[in-house]
Amino acid sequence: MSNDNPQDVLFETFKLGNLALPNRVLMSPLTRSRSSQPGDVPNDMNAEYYQQRASAGLIISEATQVSPQGKGYAFTPGIHSKEQIAGWKKVTDAVHHSGGRIHLQLWHVGRISHTDLQPDGRKPVAPSAIAPEGAKTYVSADSGMVDIAEPRALETDEIAGIVEQFRTGAENAKAAGFDGVEVHAANGYLLDQFLKSGSNHRTDEYGGSAENRAKLTLMVTQAAIDVWGKENVGIRVSPTGSFNAMYDEDPLETYTVLAKHLNDLGVAYIEVVEDSFQGNHANGRPESVIDAIQANFKGRYIANGAYTAEEARRRISAGRCDLVTFGRPFIANPDLPERFRQDAPLNEWDDSTFYGGDAKGYTDYPALAEQKATA
């Protein structure tokens, strides 16, 4: 059946902060590890990739390190040098030329790194000196996956410097022509490490209670608001995600506290990783945590995690979310909204090409119109 019908909730226009979105089919942040080396610089191929997907209601860029210290994987892009800003400007210009909208995801990996990726071979930093059991990264094109060693705990007087790294990243994102920023506080990276009790064993003002563990995330979010205004800032969280050896003793309490404070800050949206192929402590979507976030946060709720078009329609219609971000389907289907609109078959993704490489599995997935033209 065709979904080309004005009542389809996926294709209702939607106001998100300062942006008017043409649909509710958003592109999730997706690490693809194809920035130019040396320098972690976005390139022409990256610009083509994002431009192909400009029909998304909003593109949220791949995670982008705010400093050399924030880097955790080979070939991921940064937003802390003039060359990186210029590279991202190619991307934003291409997306805007095709009528799209794009936010930059601001990223610091914390402990999910390696001395080979850190300035002067230093240890990665974290809230506590706890090695993430089983977590791995890659440090070069031919390294394969390598273990992550024990990080060092950040000193209390270093926290302000972390906030400034994010602030500078937000300023550079503005210079690069983005429409807003998303603070990455999910998936086992630095802010998530501070939020969750399993990785944060601090005894200073940034550890212990949920209020204390949320402080750094809220300080970083405020810094982004200072640069962009609250209507152009969102945040990504993964309350029950287990990727990168993450665990929280009471996600209901932790994310109730965080949601209340984010509501006070007035950010435009929370993107919630409800489920993930990379691991989830909940059995399916954590409905009680979703309820708690929605009860305490009055901005837009963006759902993420293994969604189909039909489930997105159902949950939007039931008030369980406002918008949905799609990850792997957008990798393989540059025109995903149009395929949803027509109820057309989806290309299958090739997960062997997700991270690193060239145009194969990156910019060579065909759009529906191309397939019909050659059929």
Rank of each mutant, 00 (worst) to 15 (best):
H114P: 03
T115L: 10
E133N: 12
D179G: 02
G70E: 00
G17Y: 02
R53M: 04
T115G: 06
D8A: 07
G188S: 09
L16K: 02
E310F: 06
R152S: 12
Y73M: 11
E155R: 15
D351H: 15
R300E: 08
K71C: 02
N187M: 14
E133F: 11
H108I: 07
G78H: 00
K136C: 10
I112A: 03
G266K: 10
V125Q: 11
S242G: 03
S317A: 14
E171Y: 01
A126N: 04
A369V: 10
D179Y: 02
T31W: 05
Q7R: 13
S199C: 14
Y255H: 11
N5C: 13
Y301K: 04
K89H: 02
E211Q: 15
E370C: 05
I85V: 02
S276L: 09
E310D: 12
Q105W: 03
A210T: 10
N212I: 08
N304R: 08
N3A: 13
L252M: 03
Q118E: 05
D264Q: 15
P42C: 01
N283R: 08
A135G: 05
M1A: 14
L30Y: 13
T240A: 12
R314A: 15
R314N: 13
I293F: 13
L195Y: 08
R315D: 15
D142H: 14
D192L: 10
N46F: 08
K360G: 08
A268G: 06
A126K: 09
G72K: 00
T374W: 11
Y301G: 01
D147Y: 11
S199M: 13
Q65V: 05
K260S: 14
V41Y: 02
E287F: 15
G39W: 03
P286H: 01
G17P: 01
A153V: 13
K15N: 14
E287G: 04
L16H: 05
L191P: 11
G208I: 09
L218E: 09
V289A: 13
K136R: 14
Y269D: 04
N200R: 09
A223M: 06
H80N: 07
A63K: 06
F277H: 13
S209Q: 08
Q51S: 12
A224H: 04
G305W: 09
Q84W: 00
I79Y: 00
G180C: 01
I112H: 02
T353V: 14
N18F: 04
R24D: 04
D40N: 13
G121K: 06
I235H: 08
L106V: 08
F166G: 02
E62S: 04
N3T: 05
P68Q: 00
